[in-house]
Computed example of a mutant assay.
Amino acid sequence: MNSKDKYENERKSIRLIFHEHKGRYGYRRVTAEMRNRGYEINHKTVQRLMNEMGLQCKIRKVRYRSYKGEVGKIAPNIIERNFIATAPNRKWATDVTQINVGAVKLYLSPIVDMFNGEIVSYNISTSPNLEQIYDMLDKAFAKYDCLDGLILHSDQGWQYQHYGYRKRLEEHHIIQSMSREGNCLDNAVAENFFGIMKSELLYAEKFETPEAFMKALEE
């Protein structure tokens, strides 16, 4: 049996999912939907089959890079791609992404709970700075009396290396974890949230103003 015959049904389903979502799904989201439909298939196989069929996600990725070299202290990668949490507030992920609305650049900084994908808190700003990160943290801390032993994972962005950020985590007995340099898969939970948000909100609608986008994001 050749490869094409082996994956005949998978190819049909992949093509169907891709066109159902108007080409907005990349191989990771197609893989997730395939599993929802009962297929046992990994993302590498889906990626290869999509490439063979010429199915490329139409969404243009805009990624804000916060890494500026080592400006503070690098934390170890405690998560090590183990994104499974057995209860809320055990493992959180955070990152910053750039969002273009017309000529305006916005920066979204959320905290995502690995247990259920819930957005614990977020800040959206016209400038990626420490005040944005502190506001996001303060909103999260205000929700819970005790976060002892929580792991908060990020990339090696300069904000997360900063003494003020690390100090805030220490004060709440939160363990800091960081991705390896330049390895976005180490922070896949935050990356996946950004992909979904951009596919289903930012690129799915036409926003005339930053305020219109921010209102839709809140909703």
Rank of each mutant, 00 (worst) to 15 (best):
N2S: 10
S3K: 10
K4H: 15
K4R: 13
D5N: 12
Y7K: 00
E8D: 07
R11A: 10
K12R: 12
K12F: 10
R15S: 13
R15I: 07
I17Q: 05
F18M: 00
H19Q: 11
H19S: 08
H19E: 12
E20L: 05
H21A: 00
G23V: 00
Y27V: 01
R28H: 13
R29E: 04
V30Q: 06
T31Q: 07
T31G: 05
A32M: 12
A32W: 14
A32N: 11
N36I: 00
R37N: 10
G38A: 02
Y39F: 15
E40D: 14
V46S: 04
L49G: 04
G54S: 01
L55N: 03
K58Y: 12
K61Y: 15
R63Y: 15
E70D: 09
V71Y: 06
G72S: 02
K73W: 14
I74H: 12
P76A: 07
N77Q: 05
E80Q: 15
R81F: 14
N82R: 07
A85E: 08
N89C: 05
R90C: 09
K91C: 06
W92G: 05
A93G: 13
V96Q: 00
G102T: 00
K105S: 11
K105G: 01
Y107A: 01
Y107V: 00
S109Y: 04
M114D: 12
F115W: 15
N116I: 06
V120T: 01
Y122C: 02
T126I: 03
T126L: 02
P128M: 03
Y134R: 12
F141V: 01
K143G: 01
Y144K: 11
H153T: 05
D155V: 03
Q159C: 13
Q161E: 09
L169D: 06
L169E: 04
E171L: 09
I175L: 13
I175Q: 10
M178I: 08
R180L: 12
R180E: 14
R180F: 14
C184F: 08
C184M: 03
D186H: 00
N187T: 05
A188V: 02
E191S: 03
F193A: 06
F194A: 02
I196M: 11
M197S: 04
M197D: 08
A204T: 02
F207L: 05
F213R: 01
M214G: 01
L217R: 00
E218F: 13
E219G: 00
